[in-house]
Design a protein around this nucleic acid. Structure first.
Lengths: 351, 351
DNA sequence: CGGAGCACCGTGAGCGCTCACAGTCTCCAT
DNA sequence: ATGGAGACTGTGAGCGCTCACGGTGCTCCG
């Protein structure tokens, strides 16, 4: 009886019936001359299985082209093997920022190597956030990687309430709920860069800071202030509206206006720095001769600007690695602590 | 009996036992005073349900905080509600290219709005490709969005062999298996841009083409040739090694060397154009006065270069929309045909 | 007034797997 | 010989859902 002949012509979802049903454990077991249980055992780390049946089962799996039905498995184990990568950004940051892309890529790769899959979810709108929550509550994912949280983001707390393991990328704001995170050392990195610019002979140092409601925007500015102390007046600080090239250009224009005699600027992200470089060039300032520029991230564009950008490298692949490690530990019922990773200065030509 | 007290101290996976079991359909049914079947009916488009029980069930769901167990559902329906977004790129293109990020974002958004989820999968290494295949065969996904296929990519054919609906983003090479695709009109766009450059007064027009093993690299060059005809000699064509800024710079340097008197160049992608702009600037050529530059994509960087890039806009959000529409049609058992979307010229300052 | 037709509802049989338990069979110490 | 300790294996129950079917009770028409 061919299964592409629908038994009930009127039934909706005729397509479903056309679904080729793959071989099941039972089929494999029969072919291998063993029972379901034994097949299951070889599937999950063959303990207490004779080498004879092991071989038989493996051979049977090969011949039938068996592949485990994750749904059936998840139904009983209550583990899905998937992890949600949640982008808690209101807008189109993914559009622009290579940092995010890089992080996403590394996480996907790492998770994949563990046989887990990554579900990408946006959480910009209320509906999207609700979907994320439902997803978490529904046990569709074993854990959540929450990226780019703004201060006072209620999603973090809500997610925590679902009981699903969550790890945050980037240091969460102090006023939020406490949860494990993995972050680059933004503040320390900012300190390093600020010192470096000073060491290079900067007399009048200013900064383009990131948005005040992001961890990066806060921490990197804090690092700047740590070093500059009383000299970090309001005059030498301009906040960018977002992490985009345009925002960087605008912020730099403002800065140039407020502080025309500046001879160095620490820009809180590479993308912003690209904009800043444009504004500088438009204003006729040469980099690094007139103005030294230091960025942050060492993203893909950093080496492609003119001049190439001196910047702080975020160890993104390591951030990703720690992120999934922490999450998997949590998902395994173990505890895990937050981690802060050091950043390093990459010297190019802009400072 | 608290369920956080493991019954078997030695058993691995004590964590699993600690899993809070959410309310099931049965719980909802009991509370609402109806049967499982009725709850199921309201869950799936409440047909043949009295308004009284409808309300009762909804209320019960609200009160219990019920959320459907997708695994149990998938087990019987054999539909997962997920779609794989497969990146068939050997390397780190995701790192750099905003086009991809944008596409990914739109797809995630669109799919999410349909209550479906997107699994991001890489298919760069053989192991990764195998995982994708297993995933498809295992029925973990209802369909696959295959992105950025190189010519002769065996993945496409293998994927087709699994019986899972596949739609390709970008026109697949003619020598590959025939499968539905959605693409921007690369060739037509390239023609438009080439004509435009000519119309602007270009006498000596050259091109930086994309890699020859990518649809974009082939089609856009074809469009260039369509217009230039016999004037499209090997001298005025340089292929970039990849779609990156660095590759663009290198290609432009070569081109400048091979054809020093060029006064306009069509660059096959914005990212390449950024590199080209750098090379031009390094060579002391002014844009657009000495050399006009036309890009392709209208990606986020296009408006951020100096000068801002005149480029062909790919209707990415529409590409994404058609992509998921076609895929969902296929997944619904219907047929769907490939689509080619028009590109438009965006005039900025570089040409 | 009988029964066809309809709207609604409950029930049973699974989907393909895992996990605990209960064997069986072998081997060695008593 | 006899028991116990392993090593290995089969079996049953059940995860939470959907779908077909068979039952209600009602209306409406001949």
């Amino acid at each position: 009886m061919p299964d592409d002949a629908p038994a009930h012509p009127k039934s909706r979802g005729a397509a479903r019936r056309a679904q080729r049903r793959g071989p099941t454990m039972e089929d494999v077991a029969t072919l291998a001359g063993v029972s379901r249980g034994t097949v299951s055992r070889v599937l999950n780390g063959a303990n207490h299985v004779s080498s004879a049946s092991l071989r038989a089962v493996q051979e049977a799996m090969r011949r039938t082209g068996y592949v485990v039905n994750q749904n059936a498995r998840s139904l009983v184990t209550k583990r899905s093997g998937a992890v949600a990568f949640v982008l808690s950004e209101p807008s189109d940051r993914l559009f622009e920022d290579p940092v995010l892309g890089s992080l996403l890529r590394h996480c996907t790769q790492l998770l994949g190597a563990q046989g887990r899959s990554l579900m990408l979810m946006l959480a910009g709108t209320p509906e999207e956030r609700e979907r994320v929550l439902v997803f978490a509550r529904g046990g569709h994912v074993d854990g959540v990687l929450l990226v780019s949280m703004h201060s006072g983001d209620p999603l973090a707390a809500d997610l925590l309430g679902t009981g699903v393991p969550v790890v945050v990328c980037g240091r969460p704001p102090a006023d939020g709920p406490s949860m494990p995170y993995v972050a680059a050392d933004d503040r320390g990195g900012a300190r390093l860069m600020t010192k470096y610019l000073l060491d290079q002979g900067a007399k009048r140092l200013a900064t383009v800071a990131g948005p005040g409601d992001t961890p990066g925007g806060v921490e990197r500015l804090a690092g700047f202030r740590d070093v500059l102390g009383r000299r970090a007046t309001a005059k030498v600080i301009v906040r960018a509206a977002s992490y985009s090239i345009d925002a960087g250009r605008e912020a730099m224009e403002q800065l140039l206006h407020a502080c025309p005699d500046l001879d160095a600027v620490f820009v809180a992200s590479d993308l912003l720095a690209v904009g800043a470089l444009q504004a500088l060039s438009a204003a006729g300032r040469r980099v690094p001769d007139d103005v030294r520029v230091g960025g942050f991230d060492d993203s893909a564009i950093a080496s492609a600007t003119t001049p190439p950008l001196t910047t702080m490298r975020q160890p993104l692949s390591q951030v990703a690695a720690e992120l999934v490690e922490v999450l998997l530990q949590l998902a395994g019922g173990r505890t895990a602590s937050s981690r802060v990773l050091p950043t390093t200065l990459v010297r190019r030509d802009s400072a």
